[in-house]
Amino acid sequence: MIEWIAAFLLISGSLFMLVAAIGTVKLSDVYMRMHAITKAASLGAILMLASVSLIYMQWIVWIEALMVVVFVIFTAPIASHMIAKAAHKTGMPKGPGYIMDEMEGKDTYLPEE
C-alpha cells in the first residue's frame, strides 16, 4: 500500500517538474516563466521528497527531507522576488498583451552596495 502511495507521489512530482519545464519553453516573458518555475517546480520537489521519506522509514531521512522542504518553501519566493526586480530594473522587454504596468518609472528600494 505504501509503495503505491510513494509511486503516485513520485510520478506526480516528476509531472509537476515536467509542467514547469514546458512552461519555461512556452510562456512568453521572464515574469511568466518565473510563475511556472517558482510554484510548480518547488511543489514537485516537495512531492518527491515526501515519496522518499515514505519509502525509507529512518529519522535521518525524515530530518533531511524536512530541511530541503523548508529551504525550498522559504527561499524560492525570495529568489524570484530578487530576479523579477532586477529584470524589471534593467528594463527587460515584456511579452505581448500587457494591460498595465504601474511599476514603470516608480522609485523603488535598492539594496546598498
Binding site: F16, K39, M103
Partner: peptide
C-alpha cells in the same frame, strides 16, 4: 502552493490563451 501549482499546470497544458498579465500596485 498546491492550488497555485495546479492552476499554473492547467494553464500551461491547455493551449488556449487566457492570459492578461499586468503589474499592479
Amino acid at each position: 502552493l498546491v492550488l497555485s501549482s495546479l492552476y499554473v499546470a492547467y494553464d500551461i497544458i491547455t493551449p488556449k490563451d487566457l492570459m492578461k498579465p499586468g503589474i499592479v500596485e
